[in-house]
Design a protein around this nucleic acid. Structure first.
Lengths: 241, 241
DNA sequence: CGTCTGATTGAACTGATTCAACGGATGTGG
DNA sequence: CCACATCCGTTGAATCAGTTCAATCAGACG
């Protein structure tokens, strides 16, 4: 934990001491807290800042008129909301806090400063966005092609692996503050069926999920169960230039 | 039709004569043709060029081990594959031709030249990518939340509207070279059910689909049927700076 | 012609939904 | 501190949207 945390984007380029400090300085400028289950940004809003999640979980979601909700991404510590959203006039989705969320609001101007000051930071931000796009494609595939148990297993694998990247796992365990409603909205299932599917996964000893903590006794076999292929997270584009 | 076509990205910033010519020059450098149903890029490949679709339809898709396939996006004339893919080591999905596809391969170096030479082109490319990301979120929502008839109606609306943006519609009609298998893979349904759902849409007079031509007699009512909200295509971020 | 791809149909089946109810935990206001 | 409401997880039973399997048909193509 350098300054406030290990940023997700550090995984996508190697930063010098000076770059880390620059990043920290910009992040520290304006740190905010959102209470659990509150919206951070709403669909239709004019984007004003780029947000970096420092602590807690949030999600991007889209809501249909009749109330149906699709969670299209989870944001965990270190995640950056699109570095250029302000190039579009209106948000096409909302961002909501799952837990209490501490996040930094960065003005577009400051992003520009960062990007101009450091090609490495610019590179890392671009890669982070490309990975976000890749993750979104995988999610489309997840809800489009996989059955219930595969969808949930896949989501567990993804979140565990992403949390591990930012050092937020302990052995085979990580935080997992999602309700079964959240899981339902993320996987395109009903909460009733999520409940039954989780029981199934537990019965198979594939996961433990107690008290908002997820444990995956054998990650490899959970991955095998849902044909999880980590390529889409693009680890291999790390730190090397 | 300026040079080879009206580029999709022209919708996202206004270009001077000089900028259009610059764009044309880079595009003309290396134009290739892919036969129908052939892959243009394969998952696992090292990205070597940015492609601009000049003519025909293509799709991005992901294939699972057991053969299940999810189409995650359709590419129509004017579309640009991610301008920075080369920042990642390996493609996480494939791009396949649906029809015969004419496309330009642009070397990363030439993209850099373009971007450096013209802030407007850079802006347009960034916006195009942000819109692609938005469309991907909408697709996740489409397969996650909507029923069969809504999914297909929504897809028809999206494609019609996007084609209209690049002047590829004639009145209420546009090309629609997709097979029912393609539609199935894009919507997460089986081709059998796509067939029945299309019949249903035709019976309701919501669409005509004959000979690879789609006609939407009343776009408004088709949009109403699936709660289509065009915001996610971000028209409003057009041409104005 | 035969072969192949894509569209169509029928009938049986099933994964997931819907509806409804219940219990435990947590929080809140009087 | 009790009474009440709310959120979240759980269960059962009936239902249904979409799948599966299998067969047929039309058009395109060498």
């Amino acid at each position: 934990m350098g300054g406030l945390l290990r940023y997700q984007i550090e995984a996508f380029a190697s930063f010098s001491q000076a770059e880390c400090e620059l990043l920290d300085a910009v992040v520290r400028k304006n740190v905010t807290v959102a209470r659990p289950r509150r919206d951070i940004v709403r669909e239709g809003d004019t984007p004003r800042s780029v947000d970096v999640i420092l602590d807690g979980w949030a999600c991007r979601y889209k809501q249909l008129r009749d109330g149906r909700r699709q969670i299209v991404a989870f944001l965990i510590p270190g995640d950056v909301t699109d570095a250029d959203v302000h190039l579009l006039r209106k948000m096409d989705h909302s961002i909501g806090a799952i837990t209490r969320v501490q996040y930094a609001q960065i003005a577009p101007v400051d992003i520009e400063t960062l990007v101009n000051a450091s090609p490495q930071i610019a590179l890392a931000l671009r890669r982070h966005e490309l990975v976000n796009a890749s993750v979104q494609r995988e999610w489309t595939t997840n809800v489009g092609q996989r059955c219930a148990i595969e969808r949930i297993a896949h989501l567990c694998c993804e979140l565990f692996v992403r949390l591990r990247m930012v050092d937020l796992t302990e052995g085979q365990t990580c935080d997992f503050p999602l309700t079964q409603y959240d899981l339902a909205d993320a996987t395109g299932l009903t909460s009733v069926h999520v409940n039954r599917t989780l029981q199934d996964l537990r019965r198979q000893n594939a996961i433990k999920l107690i008290d908002k903590k997820l444990t995956i006794p054998e990650l490899d076999s959970l991955m095998a169960m849902c044909a999880f292929n980590a390529n889409y997270l693009h680890y291999d584009s790390q730190t090397g230039s």
